[in-house]
């Protein structure tokens, strides 16, 4: 299964991928370009594409859209000021035809930081209820720091992609 991880810079995409894979997360530089990780998750092999989120390289995201089964949108819950940017970039992404079939997992990261709004509040700001009704999506609060919520999120994503493939063929 091919998973694409995107989101604003500083949201924790690389940390999430390394954490899921059980790797050291103590020294991670902002991603200049992208990382690809192949991991075995449950019975599936996931190809996770972790693409840098800095403004300059967001225009490169579209190069990775093709054949994406699962889309992971990562949000820095503590970055209130840029939630509007975050909403705008997500809206743009969801207009993309090549991603229209992909299941969408929204990870509200950094829930461990005191004062961060909870996933429901963020869902409201991002206006997720207004999304295209055919989209399969799920929002999960998580912390790449403690690992909380990550497995719950990816369990859903992998199951959803798997069940869609059942129906599809």
């Amino acid at each position: 299964m091919r998973m694409l991880m995107v989101g604003l810079d500083n949201s924790g995409k690389t940390t999430i991928v390394l954490k899921i894979n059980g790797e050291d997360t103590s020294v991670i530089s902002p991603t200049l370009g992208f990382n690809i990780k192949t991991i075995t998750y449950q019975k599936y092999t996931l190809n996770i594409w972790d693409v840098g989120g800095q403004k300059t390289i967001r225009s490169y995201w579209r190069n990775y859209f093709e054949q994406t089964d699962g889309l992971v949108w990562v949000v820095d819950s503590s970055d209130l000021r840029r939630l509007d940017d975050c909403k705008m970039e997500l809206d743009n992404l969801l207009k993309e035809e090549r991603l229209s079939g992909a299941s969408l997992l929204i990870l509200e990261n950094k829930q461990d930081i005191k004062g961060a709004p909870n996933p429901e509040e963020i869902a409201k700001v991002l206006n997720l209820e207004a999304m295209d009704k055919t989209r399969h999506w799920q929002i999960v609060g998580c912390s790449a720091y403690t690992g909380e919520g990550l497995l719950e999120g990816f369990d859903w994503l992998v199951q959803d992609v798997a069940s869609r493939i059942y129906v599809l063929d």
């Binding site: 209130l80 000021r81 509007d84």
Partner: peptide, 22 residues
């Protein structure tokens, strides 16, 4: 109109939260 509404809702929501954060 749905979109325009959602935008103002989000701004309102944001300014409320920003005031709250230390």
């Amino acid at each position: 109109p749905g979109n325009a509404d959602s935008f103002s809702v989000s701004l309102e929501k944001l300014s409320f939260q920003v005031r709250d954060s230390p």
